[in-house]
Write a protein that binds this DNA or RNA. Sequence first.
DNA 1: CTGAAAGCGCTAACAC
DNA 2: GTGTTAGCGCTTTCAG
Lengths: 343, 343
Amino acid sequence: MRPKRPSIKDIASRLNVSVTTVSFVLNGKGPEMRISEEVTQRVLSYAKEVNYSPNRLAQSLRTGKSNIIVFMVEDISNPFFARLARIIEVIAYRKGYKVIFCSNENDDRHTQELLQVFRDQQVTGYIIIPSAGAKKQIQALLEAGIPVILFDRYFPGLETNYVVIDNENATYRATRHLIGNGYRDIGFVTLDTSQTQMLDRLKGYKKAVKEVRLKSRVLKLPYRADAPEGESCMRGFFEAHPELDAVFFATNYLTQQGLLVMREHFPGKLTDWGIMTFDDTEFFRIHTPSISAVAQPLEEIGHKLMEIMLELLRDGKETVHQVVLKAELRERDSSRPKAPRGV
Amino acid sequence: MRPKRPSIKDIASRLNVSVTTVSFVLNGKGPEMRISEEVTQRVLSYAKEVNYSPNRLAQSLRTGKSNIIVFMVEDISNPFFARLARIIEVIAYRKGYKVIFCSNENDDRHTQELLQVFRDQQVTGYIIIPSAGAKKQIQALLEAGIPVILFDRYFPGLETNYVVIDNENATYRATRHLIGNGYRDIGFVTLDTSQTQMLDRLKGYKKAVKEVRLKSRVLKLPYRADAPEGESCMRGFFEAHPELDAVFFATNYLTQQGLLVMREHFPGKLTDWGIMTFDDTEFFRIHTPSISAVAQPLEEIGHKLMEIMLELLRDGKETVHQVVLKAELRERDSSRPKAPRGV
DNA sequence: CTGAAAGCGCTAACAC
DNA sequence: GTGTTAGCGCTTTCAG
């Protein structure tokens, strides 16, 4: 490593051939360019001998492509995103792409700044959970002909590739499951936002309770609330609705907050209530009681995302891929039928 | 974005100055090079007008520096690493660096391959949790004069920068805490590995139990065991040692596995036993019972890592930084004194 | 004070 | 079949 890494030029001069020849051989264009078998072999073996590996920067500078895929989520420390990141990473590396992860904190300005940075890096493709107001930036990328895939949510008016799950139906089914197990007053805790995935979840819940003529009780937490604030809101909600016998949290971190609130202020409800969460984590499986969850098919999402990305990179954007996957309901202790309370 | 981005050349020709002048001005070397105030202003304002931003690739190619920092951990989906990643990311971006995360799966070959890829990218600096046999590769980086900081563990013989915590003392104190609360038969569940951090944790445990003449009962799980295997080992261990009244898990994922095993096969022990874990997560706080944990100071580790990294990037490696931070014991329900069992 | 020019390592059109 | 050469966009030495 000390003696500076060999370049194509070094190889060429050492072998008394031109850089072109070397470049062609190394890029597998030997046959195409009808480089003699003998030269090809010499180049190849010498390259291996000196452990040649191309300078990707120079390559990228020249070709305008960096083979870097950006994976932008709200917060990489959310286990849901972290696990997905891992899946994507594995596939991408196998295909010779690198992945840069980053968190946009669901903030438009932050998204904007990050995209700016990446533009400078000639990033090859983007997989993005867009913040609410990022539509314009996404559009800019699309117009520049750069592969973009949204996931988790999308912009209804925008013709882009995306991979999402059927939030409405999944929530609907989970709510019906609660109802089927005897719960009659189901609270729904969500965020006050207009993002598609959250709206759809709310819709699914409402549809289910309406169908069986139950009351809908929704708590919309202020969107950018910090944890303590969210917790006191929930506490107020639970106190104001002593009639509740179940609660459905619309995201995994809401559930975490909610469980904490219940544990501290309403310990009895932890076992009395039906509890359902959206987005499964190891945590919910081990919790006592174990928490029933709507689980997004992480592996499938990751594979689908990369499948589309690779196709886009290969063929350019011929067709728009809009994929809606099904989520899985994982029934656990927290939603089993409880002893009747005489409702 | 459509009309190709402006380059220095474009600016120069538009303003009838040379690229050199523009480059100097844009890099803040105007004063140093005594570029006239007037030209400086013209360049600056025009650059802003066309929203100029340098092509980082070209810059990197020229300078040999990419401003990319690699953050390599065992598994980015481990919440401990994910949260740390987040902290590092924030600091790095603020300083104009990008961060590439990746997971080496604690595997030497994988580490090797990744480092190879990054070498091609002229990565500026590395923050690494090394896999057991990565000493040679780390050494190669050091010899090439590339900033490297290890964390979580280190190689005893190798003079490198690292940030770790005082594993032995932390484990010692946590074990003493259990003992102080009346537990007398404390099992220690760890991995069969020679990595420093795990050895130190074991040492701390042994020191504590020896001091008060208790028996040491250690389960070393096969290093690369998959989850089911680990679980059955633990189950066997618990069954073979009915005298245990507490258990100390040496990593967060061992704890997760352990809790699952207890929940399924020894539900009573979940509340009867004292439980202690290494590495805190949200999860342990919310679990019932809440799990006492030795918490690594994530913020501090992240800041320290970046502080050292920035210094290395600025000054080159003048001194070697070896930082040992203190961990915090978070006492929760799982380690409170239990009703006496008549030991 | 400013400009010309070399060159980072690679690709690819073009020439022989 | 193979070589020459012109850049990609930028930094920096050297000359004025």
